[in-house]
Design a protein around this nucleic acid. Structure first.
Lengths: 162, 162
DNA sequence: CACAAATCCTACCAGCAGGGTCGGTTTAGC
DNA sequence: GCTAAACCGACCCTGCTGGTAGGATTTGTG
């Protein structure tokens, strides 16, 4: 699995916030109920988004969360990065100096690390996909309850089997 | 982390095999020594590659493994797919009917699943990166022990920070 | 034939990250 | 003061990752 449930929950949460008017705080409870997610766990998820500056919050009664920017200005790589911490295809992309044998880059034999080339390309592919998708797109896609047909041009890329 | 160590080890193994003349079997022990990887674990890894038809094997003394096709005809998505089983950004891409709350696609509210759109794009980005890289490229990149400079044009895409 | 080098196969295991839960504290509106 | 919310930190359970162990089988060589 590439992304953990934090990413899934966090993106859903962002979409819910994107559906609301800005500055109108939405409580976590409302989101948890709407999406059927555990409230206590969502707290941890939303904390990451807040620390990353993607959402803002108000405490106390009638408090809640809202997007700190319009959904159209939020690229999904920011969101996923905040939720997952990093987008790393392989361990050595995070811990340069793990004790694991796993990644003996710059090895004694003097050969260049070919797997790093591969994983770097993969990372590029992922980040590009995320960067070119905005939260607003996802909000539009989820859209209003389905009426039977999609708005034209709203789903340019949905070939699952690629 | 996106890929497990099986992918790292398996790709390294394939590169080692790509460096050898075809039909000349290479023993796992030689590869394990060359890469500094545990032999017993490599057995499990290479078994996946064999079952996928990417390598062939000969038992007995002077047995070993070799590529079943020229390295130039092996795209890396095949290799990674064989090693990892699948390339799935999110759990629901594998177990359509897991009991987890995680993925309530086609939900009661009738809204379309926007996260699935996002993960599908990501999956596409990954698979495209892998498909457009052949094993031969990686073998060339690892190349002979570094002499100080790369062959021109051999590393078209190495921007780690992207 | 005996032996050694190799693939092949199955079972087992320890650690740890993922996916939560729980209880409590603080803040703010009514 | 009560209640609804955000906030915080500790804890916990389960399954998967990354191996290890031990053998069985095959095959070239002396």
């Amino acid at each position: 699995m590439i992304f953990s449930s934090k990413a899934e929950y966090g993106v859903r949460l962002m979409i819910e916030l994107g559906r609301q008017a800005p500055e109108h705080p939405t409580s976590l409870k409302a989101i948890a109920d709407a999406e059927g997610l555990p409230l206590a766990y969502l707290e941890q998820v939303v904390a990451r988004l807040r620390r990353a500056g993607l959402v803002m919050s108000a405490r106390g009664a009638h408090g809640g969360y809202w997007l700190s920017r319009p959904a159209g200005e939020i690229a999904m790589d920011e969101v996923v990065m905040a939720l997952e911490g990093s987008i790393a295809p392989m361990e050595c992309f995070i811990n340069e100096h793990t004790e694991r044998v796993l990644c003996s880059h710059e090895p004694d034999a003097g050969r260049r690390c070919a797997t790093k080339l591969l994983w770097t390309r993969v990372q590029g592919g992922i980040i590009r996909s995320l960067q070119t998708t905005t939260l607003a797109e996802l909000v539009d896609f989820a859209g209003d309850p389905v009426t039977g047909y999609a708005e034209p041009g709203s789903a340019p890329e949905l070939a699952v089997t690629e």
